[in-house]
Design a protein around this nucleic acid. Structure first.
Length: 654
RNA sequence: GCCGGUGUGGCGCAGUUGGUAGCGCAGGCGAUUUGUAAUCGUCAGGUCGUCGGUUCGAGUCCGACCACCGGCUCCA
């Protein structure tokens, strides 16, 4: 039998009655690092007899190893809670990215609070110290139902056996053959597919993170359970590294940076989810929008401009009132008509299309607008600039002849990626979201639109996955996700092929054969929303935006008063080549002035003193470097930075 | 919207068992004129998220609401 070790090497052994025997039969430095094994692609407990041709030993520092120890830690969490809160019901406790959770219902609708976390953690540690074995048993469905007689959630999972397509149930240890359970002690048993670590002493590098409400089965009409989140790792060091990673993410939090860098805030006087941009933040927005506008002109778009409110009839025709009334701001009555703040720009762009008769010669017609829309987001979902109630979309609607759809989509995908790259982002992934259960239109229309999107994706270099049923009610869509500097995924761009609105608005164009035809319509936003994209950029760059997006690009710092004149002349020369420059006069010690600029994340700080005045040089402090470069010829510095003050114009290929 | 948490001068925080608020940074003023991440002094600034209640007395206790944070659900 072949045994594959975590270090990638393999050994041959005769036979083994259990995974433990396999581990003992091969040389491994730390035998307790092996948590489980993989036989025929299936993860199983070490206590079981290995099967198949090859046994892969799974260590705690692998992805599947961490999954196992997180899952086992979740079991210990459940055991602790059931001991501390007798009579409570437990639901599911899977491992997730970086950790695990477990859902509970306490007696009399009880709640956990933060102090409870400490008690639970202490109890968990005593369970771990007790070195309880995870003992697997297999039962029939009926035996399972009997065993969990007073655990309604477990019973529901077991009864869910009827529809086995539910993967959640499979995870929890139910199959059509029966159920598997794990006993850690006389008193605690959980329904579970496994595998688990051999015993609780294999665990320990964990931390309970927070408590939250979570709906049973993710359904807000059902019970809300008490969910406890935790994280668990193979070692104290790995746990520590994870906590450091969380700190790093917190350091990059755009809400924090927005305050520190004086970019924006959310005045309670205005209302939740409604940001104001301060001068520096507004300048960054302007730079983003300006670059986007110029790129769109190069890309063959035409600008549009539309109002913020419209009569209810417009949104009746578009279907928004029927589909999204709850998500729209409430109406205003005026002169006998009912007006709504617009939740989307598309109906208004359609009206521009319909302003006169359109010829095939005008297509594709690409209308672009930074359109501010208002959406009534539920209070609990607001999240800094990433989720607001008033947002500005870099919105465009492309109207084309059916025959142009494919070409237009390919062109668009290229345009999106080029634009996002210009902001220093890379590493993209796409999701193709198909028809949801609740939607409008004919199957063949959806099929045609979805196929067009998929074809464009297949022609592009962007990797993609299908997200079945995740489309909008009127259209399938492609969502572009990107990975930021610390590996987090963000959804940004979206593009949708809509065959419904052109019908609803009875749009048409006159084709070359003098017949009237219905145009196709593509909705697309590349930033998604300016606010959200702003947040993503801030977090990606940890506030240190590229020079072209930095509010202040260069600070000139004269060493003393007598160098002031030279500093001003330097600043004038820089301003002339388009730089945003600030001179920080000698009213404070040099170190203090440099520190201020560094905290502001200014890309360049130029220190000028007597030596520089004499030799026409500057001392250059680059952001990110702690060593200044002294006696740099100013003319050389000018040459160097002239290229990065403004973004490189987009190259648009047809 | 639901669950848990938080809410003290612009920002970050301290305020013991209820006895009418402190610190640092930022800001104003004055001095200092500085060669690479915090010069010194001084002044000003808060009805302690809002409203109501308990109390002789509330930042401290109770209730409602608002905002924010972490989740759940949602995200055209």
């Amino acid at each position: 039998m072949k045994v594959l070790l975590p270090d990638g090497t393999s050994r041959e052994i005769d036979s083994a009655l259990s995974g433990f025997e396999v581990v003992n039969a091969v040389e491994i430095k730390n035998k307790r690092s092996i948590l489980a094994m993989e036989c025929n692609g299936e993860l199983v407990d070490l206590s079981r007899t290995p099967f198949g041709d090859e046994v892969v030993l799974v260590a705690g520092d692998s992805d599947s190893g961490r999954g196992i120890l997180r899952h086992s830690t979740a079991h210990v969490l459940a055991q602790a809670v059931l001991e501390l809160w007798p009579g409570s019901k437990f639901a599911i406790g899977p491992f997730i990215q970086d950790g695990f959770y477990y859902d509970f219902a306490l007696v009399d609708n009880g709640r956990f609070n933060d102090e409870d976390m400490e008690r639970i953690e202490a109890k968990m540690r005593s369970i771990i110290k007790a070195n309880q074995r995870f003992v697997r048993e297999e039962l029939s469905i009926q035996e399972g139902l009997d065993l969990f007689g007073n655990q309604p959630f477990k019973r529901e999972i077991i009864e869910g056996v009827a529809h086995l397509d539910d993967s959640e149930d499979a995870n929890e240890g139910v199959s059509d053959k029966g159920v598997s359970i794990y006993r850690n002690s006389e008193t605690f048993v959980d329904l579970c597919r496994g595998p688990h670590v051999p015993s609780t002493s294999y665990l320990g590098s964990f931390k309970l993170m927070r408590v939250a409400g979570a709906y049973w089965r993710g359904d807000e009409k059902r019970d809300q359970l008490q969910r406890i989140y935790g994280t668990a790792w193979e070692s104290k060091d790995a746990l520590e590294a994870y906590l450091v990673r969380l700190d790093e993410a917190e350091r990059r939090d755009h809400r924090k940076l927005g305050m520190e860098l004086d970019l924006f805030h959310f005045p309670p006087e205005i209302g939740g989810g409604l940001p104001v941009f301060h001068p520096k933040g507004a300048l960054i927005r302007h730079l983003m929008e300006d670059f986007s506008k110029k790129s769109h002109l190069l890309g063959g778009y035409q600008f549009a401009w539309t109002p913020h409110i419209a009569k209810s009839t417009l949104f009746e025709v578009s279907g928004h009132l029927e589909w999204y009334k709850d998500g729209m701001y409430p109406p205003m009555e005026m002169e006998g008509a009912t007006y709504y703040p617009k939740p989307m720009n598309c109906p208004m762009h359609i009206l521009i299309y319909k302003a006169h008769q359109r010829s095939y010669r005008e297509l594709p017609l690409r209308l672009f607008e930074f359109g501010t829309v208002y959406r009534f987001e539920r209070s609990g979902v607001l999240h800094g600039l990433a989720r607001v109630r008033g947002l500005t979309q870099d919105d465009s609607h492309i109207f084309c002849a059916p025959s142009q759809l494919g070409g237009e989509l390919s062109r668009l995908l290229k345009f999106i990626i080029e634009l996002l790259k210009a902001f220093g982002l890379e590493d993209f992934e796409a999701e193709l979201a198909t028809r949801p259960a609740k939607s409008v239109g004919e199957d063949y229309e959806w099929e045609e639109a979805t196929n067009a999107l998929e074809y464009a994706l297949s022609q592009s270099e962007i990797p993609y996955v299908r997200a079945e049923g995740e489309g909008a009610f009127y259209a399938p869509k492609i969502d572009i996700h990107l990975k930021d500097a610390i590996g987090r995924r963000w959804q940004v761009s979206t593009l949708q092929v809509d065959l419904q609105l052109p019908q609803r608005f009875d749009m048409e164009f006159v084709d070359s054969d003098n017949t009237r035809k219905r145009p196709y319509m593509i909705h697309r936003a590349l930033f998604g929303s300016v606010e959200r994209f702003f947040a993503i950029l801030l977090e990606h760059y940890a506030g240190a935006l590229p020079t072209w997006l930095s509010p202040t690009q260069i600070t000139v710092v004269p060493v003393k008063e007598s160098n002031h004149e030279y500093a001003e002349s330097i600043a004038r020369a820089l301003t002339q080549i388009g730089a945003r420059v600030v001179v920080h006069g000698a009213n404070e010690p040099l170190g203090a002035r440099i520190r201020r600029s560094k905290l502001d994340k200014t890309p360049y700080i130029l220190v000028v003193g007597d030596r520089d005045v004499a030799a026409q040089t500057v001392g250059v402090n680059r952001r990110g470097s702690d060593k200044p470069e002294t006696d740099v010829l100013f003319s050389a510095f000018l040459d160097e930075i002239s290229g990065e003050l403004v973004p490189t114009p987009l190259v648009v290929t047809e």
